[in-house]
Write a protein that binds this DNA or RNA. Sequence first.
DNA 1: ATTTTGACGCC
DNA 2: GGCGTCAA
Length: 705
Amino acid sequence: MPSLLYFIVEQRKQPDLRGLPTAVVQYNAWKGGALIAVSYEARKYGVKRSMRGAESKQVCPQIQLVQVPVARGKADLSTYRNAGSEVVSILSRKGRCERASIDEVYLDLTDAAETMLAEAPPEILEVIDEEALKSHVLGLNSEDGSDAKESVRKWLCRNDADRRDKLLACGAFIVAELRLQVLKETEFTCSAGIAHNKILAKLASGMNKPAQQTVVPFSSVKVLLDSLPIKKMKQLGGKLGDSLQSDLGVNTVGDLLQFSEEKLQERYGINTGTWLWNIARGISGDEVEGRLLPKSHGSGKTFPGPQALKTIASVQHWLHELCEELSERLQLDLDQNKRIAHTLVLHATAYKVSDSDSHKKFPSKSCPLRYGTAKIQEDALSLFQAALREYLGSYTAKMQGSQNNHWGITSLSVSASKIVPIPSGTASITKYFHGHPSCSSTKQSQNNLIEEATPVPPSGNESYSEVNVTKPQIEFPGEETMIKYAETSSDQLEDKIDLLNDQNPCCSSTNQACDEFTQETVLVSTSGNEHCSGMNQSQPMKNYSGEESCVTLSMPSFNRQEQKRKAVKDKRTCSILRFFKNQDPSCAPQKLEHVENTEDVKAPPLSPGIQSRSNNCLDQNRSELPKERPPEDAGDSNVCGSFQIEHRRGGAWSYNIDEIDPSVIDELPPEIQQEVRAWIRPHKRHNTVKRGSSIAHYFLPTKNT
DNA sequence: ATTTTGACGCC
DNA sequence: GGCGTCAA
């Protein structure tokens, strides 16, 4: 909603706007356009994002309205996307980075924080970063008259602090530096949250805006959540949050603590139930993903009220525009990132002024994506026509070419998904293109190859079910050496590939002890300029505020040294062979050793029999928690079939995956380490077993509607 | 007539 | 694959 990114981009483009009440509007023909970003100055006048341009003029006559660029008759958000990319490229320098939206980023800074703690911990710093001192530290009680910065400095540099908090302090320094880098290189500001997992970091990032950062020490989590309105938590702002309030009387996150995991699962399903139970305790196993690029591209437009499209010709016209934009973006992605999209999806909404089933949803349709603007346009139109026929059902018969009184299209969108990197191993595709005499440009040659290699979907009225059977096949003639694309070697792509290959060692552990798997998460989100905040007198002159990037820095505090130490200590039992072949419980020293810590931490949604580390836990909640999962929860009832490791009691190869010492993984052959880590990472449970089944009844909590 | 994106879960 | 939810 409050995407100040749009605003700060316009402000950078037009520096005269600085300090003035400003809003970014989309279109302006109807009541002055829709506001999609409002500066803090304008907010003071009561200008809200839901207003129309004309309305904002009423409450704030001097407001500056800046228009979103228009291309092909529709809003063109590319400048904002690009601005987001600028920021991502900076924020991704210090750790795993997940682009969560156009203006939000999560970072896992665990490694960087651990390195800093080992090599240059805050307590030995001679000069303390001024920006870090401006951090807000939740729960830090600065008595009256005390200097806020001084108490922050003390907190950041405490050398008797919990290790987890020390990591957070390091995170705060790193994030402060990153935010300064962003400011310096882009002129954008951002705000950030620094905590042990994504959900807490996200929460914190919104607490002090704009252009500030907020740290959530481990010890302040419970206090923070206890009184936090439930709907403030990410994912609970909608219907689920409503249901918690009205059905369970849960108004704060703390209220959730009264409900057992089973009760929550009963009501909301096995995955959501467990997720809620964990969230109540500030626990989240959600990993920072390591993805700098979007997973899909889309282009859409609404046609509200009288603008509704009533002829196939007008639909075709707009599909052409939308597909042209989509195609352009796909080509850019291909050139810059060497990625190919495989599926084209068409969405529309429509009204039908007819009889009975006038409420039927306009179905969405998909088909294999063929590159080339004309092909995308053609396929999108075919998809639309297939969907329209289905929508109209038997009612169809009549006119499809000219005006009709039966239906109107109120929104259209086309999107491209299943985007995958071009195989880069042998880079034969590059060689092929550059070696091909007819190829005048990289772009053209890529295009050719893809077009030739992708099956042509039917263009007529036939069903698309057949189309979907055929998968595009792209062949890569030749093997051997790679020849670089002339100008297109993309840092981002290389980063991505690195990230894909990167294994976070912490992910691999099944160890769930709080002490060992605390995560530190930092959330940076761009925000406010000097005029808005009024809090930081020493703000730099040029600075544009937005909710630019929500940087979550998540840091499992289980450092490698610690892992190694344990590995050595447990040498006797941590050989993989001993572990797998021996049923003696002493094979699971980690579990025994840390039972105190583990008992109260429930895993995020998991496969049966698999427990994962949690990203943090709250000691203070221990007494409220069940002492042990009931045996049936131990998970030998395996609903999730894809797992090869199972808990089989009594078998010669019986073992419980929760008992695997994480350090064991390191002893495996390198080529299978990654696979094993994937097995033991947290997994969602499938909710697919039919309710009526007696098996399901036996193994799964019954859902009371 | 709060637009235009985008991610993800469920079946 | 298609639909629904949630969010920026």
